[in-house]
Design a protein around this nucleic acid. Structure first.
Lengths: 242, 242
DNA sequence: AATGATTTATTGGTCGGACCACCGGACCAA
DNA sequence: TTGGTCCGGTGGTCCGACCAATAAATCATT
């Protein structure tokens, strides 16, 4: 894997997707008040110069995100996105509102630092022989995996061993950011070495069912990563202000 | 609000919604393998005796849940739902597979018990005068609110004060279950009193910026609730086995 | 005048059929 | 082997029509 990933797939736009983004933005930015009734599908289609089916597909996806409520025979109503309980919204907030980006990423890292160690603790308690084999595969075999992929898989196996479906879900959520920005972290060879050391240490702790140690190891590495990224963001802020 | 919520809105079936559920179930239960190519929209429409538009709306929602990937000019492919990072899936798993229900709920309670106290800690550190006023409103004014609504609002304000968008999102997610099953907990008057005591104590801790105390208070109440519910689920299991 | 049943206009849900945009593979040519 | 072209199939959009549910207006009854 190249560091800069020059050839990334273009994101094809779908007409219904653009409409979805327009409304999504309107809701998150508060231009569409909570409880407000949207124009009818036919009106939206007319105003956007688009077919009603296309509008419907956009609205359907928005309802799937719990951003609107579609009432048959009545209309479409805006819901409070702050009460939606949908992770995808966090990604949308970052995508649509750059000002909040750094704060949100900081919050994610803080959260991960709190929950990750506890899951490592449980992983060390509950791990089976299969989990160990999987970890060995990733850490010592599979030479062709990048450090980023290795790291993601190690965390994934730990989440599986921790046996908490919510943590697994959150980890997958985090990983979407790791995949996107992780190469920045691993550009520093020092961090690569640190990560390799982490993989070996956490493996031994989990193998020995030393839950307390596993928790500490995880806590240290997550805290370190958190600090690195937050520092980077701070630098970004300063350089923007000069 | 009545305890049993006798008048809950009927869940009107949407044809596209039923199709969505069918495919959702197939994916979660593993009948549709990861990477597998689904039948074409036209085929699905023909087999299900339904219009293609209806199939499309169902597939679009599934893509919104990150369960399938729709490739223009190619086809629709099943994704690995265990890597989707979507909270809504957890709800779907509970809805579609009763066997996992208790385990998942136990995992959610465990998670909440880990993260809630830390957020209370941060809330005590970051709270503003406005947060205190909001808490006072809910706890001592607003006599007409049920204990369940009060509890939800108190936690919500704490999440706002904690200023972590991810925790706010998760809390909203948790609350969907609290709204659904919370009356069971509050049927016991002892738990109602315990909750009222909790509201007052956590308020004072947050007001005094006593972060450590706020964390302990939150931890105690969440641990207690966790134990109560898990015990209840255990009873359910036993009675099923008799 | 108040209440309850009924009608009506509006809105979302489904339909079928058409055409466009895109993809993958087959085929061909350099 | 490489690159270009063509072609069948697939998802994306469009059109116009009708079905089904809702809310508001209307009417009938008391």
């Amino acid at each position: 894997m190249t560091a800069l990933m020059l050839t990334r797939p273009l994101l094809r736009s779908r007409l219904s997707g653009e409409i979805e983004n327009i409304l999504l933005k309107g809701i998150i930015k508060g231009q569409l008040a909570v409880g407000e009734k949207l124009p009818t599908e036919r009106e939206l289609a007319r105003d956007l110069v688009v077919n009603r089916s296309t509008v419907r597909e956009a609205l359907g996806r928005l309802e799937s995100l719990d951003l609107v409520e579609i009432r048959h025979g009545d209309g479409v109503y805006v819901k409070n996105y702050l009460e939606s309980g949908n992770l995808e919204l966090i990604r949308a907030m970052i995508r649509l509102d750059d000002r909040q980006r750094d704060d949100i990423i900081a919050a994610l890292l803080e959260f991960r630092t709190i929950i990750g160690p506890e899951m490592a603790f449980r992983a060390a308690e509950n791990r089976t022989e299969e989990h160990l084999v999987s970890l060995e595969e990733v850490i010592w075999k599979n030479e062709d995996l990048s450090i980023l992929e290795k790291d993601i898989r190690v965390h994934h196996i730990i989440a599986l061993a921790g046996a908490n479906v919510l943590y697994l879900t959150l980890l997958n959520f985090f990983n979407k950011f790791v995949v996107e920005y992780g190469y920045l972290y691993f550009n520093d060879q020092e961090n690569v070495k640190r990560s390799q050391r982490f993989h070996e240490e956490i493996y031994h702790a989990i193998r020995d069912r030393n839950a307390g140690l596993a928790r500490k190891i995880m806590k240290d590495v997550l805290l370190y990563a958190q600090n690195v990224v937050v520092d980077t963001l701070q630098i970004g802020k300063k350089s923007n202000r000069r």
